[in-house]
Amino acid sequence: MKIAGIIGGSGFIGSYNVKKFLEEGYKVKVSTTDLSKKDKYNHLNQLPNSENLVIFELDVENKPQLENFLEGCSIVVHGGTPFQLDVKDPKTELFDPTIKGTENFLELVQKTSGLEKVVFIASVAACNTSFPLLPPHKSEGDQISEEDPPFMSEEGHPYAQAKFIANQTVEKFIMDHPNLDFEITTVSPVGVMGKALSKREDSTSMGLQFLFKNKIAPNPFIQMFFDNDIYFAIVDVEDVAVCVYKAATTNGIHGKNYLISSESYKVSDINLMLNNKEPEGKPIIVYRNDLARKELGINFNPAKVPLNRFSE
């Protein structure tokens, strides 16, 4: 039985990744920052095949812990950066664990024998830190694909900046190490929507859907969404898990970064669908998913699928 290590496997996206790998017959190692906080990961023990699940305590900045976690893994999925809108200290809460954690990880995976695949769950911020707004060189009606040059603004949210820099770190590592014994592939999801597998209350994706559903703006950033009725790109969390699995089990895609996106709707229409109503407008495609459909074989769900599932 092959072992898949999933860093950040108890979160919103991570839980679906764990579910997928367990279903596919893998033994799954999952990291948690604190083993004593069982409410963070107990839901994973209710998944089918959970007898093949092992929970590890891991601080990604702690090299000995990380080295112990990686031992024996043939696949490692790194999605250990929680999406946070409200940050008091960007350096300690975001930049250090995201960037230093990535650097530590890249240093240690080179020493992990038997490793076949590494999958990074980056973010749409890896190509545009202004998300959900367009980068300044794009206008409404334009589309964004993997061929577009990545855009970073120092005015962007600290989370977006951290994810952008971390992805640049990965790309530089790939260029500097042309003869690795394993493949590295990245997936970059847009706004991930759907229903959580846990009852945790710290999921930003769940929180954002709650805000959209109830037209609540706790800060000027979210208020801007409503005031301008912006287009927001959506992808189903279940589709993200399928993409991660396909990226981990498809050979010959070393160095690729796949945009993971379905449709974009105006926030007013997202509000309607989250309340089980039909949207008034039509969806558009802002972030293209051609590469993921072609090379990973993904058929993306329409945006209403995860939004309706959340509303249940």
Rank of each mutant, 00 (worst) to 15 (best):
A247R: 00
N167K: 10
G8D: 04
S15K: 00
L66S: 06
L58D: 03
T186P: 12
A125F: 05
I260L: 09
F21V: 05
S205Y: 02
Y287G: 00
F164L: 06
I75Q: 00
I3A: 04
S145N: 10
E263R: 00
G72W: 09
K20L: 14
S153A: 11
P302E: 06
L94M: 11
K195I: 05
F232Y: 08
N219I: 02
I298M: 10
V60K: 05
V286P: 07
G25T: 13
G9V: 09
D176R: 06
D269K: 01
E71K: 15
Q143S: 13
G101E: 05
P306D: 09
Q84I: 14
G191K: 03
F212T: 04
C127W: 11
N219Y: 03
G141K: 08
F151P: 03
L108S: 11
S261D: 04
D142F: 10
L70F: 02
S264Y: 08
E312L: 15
A241E: 01
Q110V: 10
K91W: 15
G8P: 05
P82H: 05
D89I: 13
I260A: 01
T185W: 03
E140A: 12
L272R: 03
P218D: 12
A247G: 01
M193K: 07
M273P: 00
E278I: 04
Q143V: 12
L94E: 02
S262L: 05
K266L: 12
K294N: 13
N62K: 14
R293L: 13
K138H: 07
N52Y: 08
L208Y: 06
K117L: 08
K2E: 15
L94F: 15
T98E: 06
L35I: 11
M1A: 14
I216C: 10
P189Q: 04
V30E: 00
M175T: 14
D202M: 12
L70V: 08
K138D: 05
K111C: 06
G14N: 03
N104V: 10
S130E: 15
N49T: 11
G11H: 07
D39T: 12
N49Q: 10
K2C: 13
N45D: 12
S113N: 12
H43G: 04
G207A: 04
F225R: 01
P220Q: 00
E24M: 11
E312R: 15
Q209Y: 06
H137W: 14
I222C: 09
F120G: 02
F164H: 01
H43C: 11
C73E: 02
V60W: 00
F300G: 05
H254K: 06
K38L: 14
L211S: 07
D239R: 07
F164P: 00
I184F: 04
G191D: 09
T250P: 13
